[in-house]
Simulated assay, not measured.
Amino acid sequence: MYTLTDVTKTYVQKKRTVTALSKVSLEIPTGQMVAIQGPTGGGKSTLLQMLGALDKPTSGDVVLGDKQVSKLPDSKLADIRATEIGFVFQSFNLIPTLTAAENVETAFAHGTLPRDEQKKKAFAALESVGLGDRGDHLPAELSGGQQQRVAIARALVKEPQVLLADEPTGALDENTRDEIMDLLEGQWRDRGLTFVLVTHDSAVARRAERRLRLKGGKVTEA
C-alpha cells in the first residue's frame, strides 16, 4: 500500500517558487489499478516520481508498505527502485544497439544474479508479453507496439510489487494502444501488481479501477 500524507513539492524556477504538489494526502491499496489524469503542468509526473522513489517531497510523507521512502537515503531508494518498482514510459527508452533480450537484461544491471539466470528470466519475460521469438531483434527492427512490449518486459522481469507507467500508450496508434492496455491489464491481474498510470487518454483511464484527477497540484477523485 502507498500512503501519502500532506505531500508538498516545490521548485524554484527563474527566481520564483512553483508548487507542483500541494498537501496531497492519498492511499493506494496493494493490488489496485489507478489512472491519474489532469492538465499539462498539473503535477502528474511529479506525483509519479514520488511514488517511484525518484524524488522526495519538500514536506510530507510517502510510505510504501512499511518503508517511509520520503526519509530514506538515496542508496536505499535505489535499492527499492531496483527490486520493488517497475517503470514504463511513453518513449520506450530502449538502448538501440542492444537486442530486445539484452534490453530486458539491463534491469539486472545493479544486481548480483548470475548471467545465465538473467538470460533465462529475460526470455521468460519476453514470452510473457508475446515476444519470445523476437529476443535477438534490435529495437529498430521492431514496431512501436513491440518496442513497448520489450519495455514492459524489462519493467516486470525483476518481479516488482509496483508498476508505474507514464503515458505508456501516448506514442501508439489506437489499435496498438488497446493491445498494450490489454497486455498491461493482464499482467496487473496475473501478478497482483499495484499499477499506477498517468494518461491523457480517457479511453485508457476508464479501464482503471480508480481514477484520480490532478490539477494545480491537488488531487481529487474522478
Score class of each variant (00 low, 15 high):
residue 29 P to K: 08
residue 27 E to K: 13
residue 32 Q to C: 11
residue 51 L to T: 08
residue 58 T to S: 14
residue 78 A to D: 12
residue 75 S to A: 14
residue 77 L to G: 03
residue 69 V to A: 03
residue 37 Q to Y: 02
residue 59 S to H: 05
residue 68 Q to H: 15
residue 62 V to F: 12
residue 87 F to P: 09
residue 68 Q to W: 04
residue 80 I to Y: 02
residue 52 G to Y: 10
residue 37 Q to T: 15
residue 72 L to P: 01
residue 65 G to D: 12
residue 96 P to R: 12
residue 69 V to Q: 06
residue 49 Q to V: 03
residue 37 Q to E: 12
residue 93 N to Q: 15
residue 68 Q to T: 15
residue 33 M to Q: 15
residue 92 F to E: 05
residue 62 V to W: 06
residue 76 K to W: 00
residue 41 G to E: 08
residue 81 R to L: 11
residue 35 A to F: 04
residue 23 K to N: 09
residue 92 F to C: 08
residue 89 F to E: 03
residue 96 P to C: 12
residue 44 K to P: 06
residue 49 Q to C: 14
residue 85 I to M: 06
residue 97 T to L: 14
residue 93 N to T: 12
residue 58 T to H: 03
residue 20 A to M: 07
residue 26 L to S: 04
residue 36 I to W: 00
residue 77 L to C: 05
residue 90 Q to I: 11
residue 60 G to T: 02
residue 38 G to D: 09
residue 74 D to W: 00
residue 39 P to K: 13
residue 49 Q to G: 13
residue 25 S to N: 05
residue 46 T to L: 01
residue 84 E to M: 10
residue 55 D to Q: 11
residue 28 I to S: 00
residue 79 D to G: 00
residue 93 N to E: 13
residue 33 M to P: 10
residue 99 T to K: 12
residue 22 S to F: 04
residue 80 I to L: 10
residue 91 S to C: 08
residue 96 P to W: 12
residue 96 P to A: 14
residue 51 L to I: 04
residue 89 F to D: 04
residue 47 L to G: 02
residue 78 A to P: 06
residue 73 P to V: 05
residue 76 K to D: 11
residue 55 D to P: 07
residue 93 N to F: 15
residue 23 K to C: 01
residue 25 S to L: 00
residue 38 G to V: 08
residue 75 S to K: 15
residue 36 I to D: 00
residue 82 A to S: 14
residue 75 S to G: 02
residue 62 V to S: 06
residue 41 G to I: 08
residue 87 F to G: 08
residue 24 V to L: 08
residue 69 V to M: 09
residue 42 G to Y: 11
residue 28 I to E: 06
residue 96 P to I: 14
residue 40 T to C: 12
residue 67 K to F: 01
residue 82 A to F: 04
residue 31 G to Y: 00
residue 25 S to R: 02
residue 90 Q to V: 13
residue 89 F to P: 02
residue 60 G to D: 00
residue 98 L to Y: 15
residue 50 M to V: 10
residue 88 V to A: 02
residue 26 L to D: 05
residue 36 I to Y: 00
residue 27 E to T: 15
residue 74 D to E: 13
residue 90 Q to E: 11
residue 38 G to M: 09
residue 53 A to M: 05
residue 95 I to M: 15
residue 47 L to S: 03
residue 65 G to S: 11
residue 72 L to A: 00
residue 54 L to P: 07
residue 20 A to T: 06
residue 95 I to P: 03
residue 79 D to W: 01
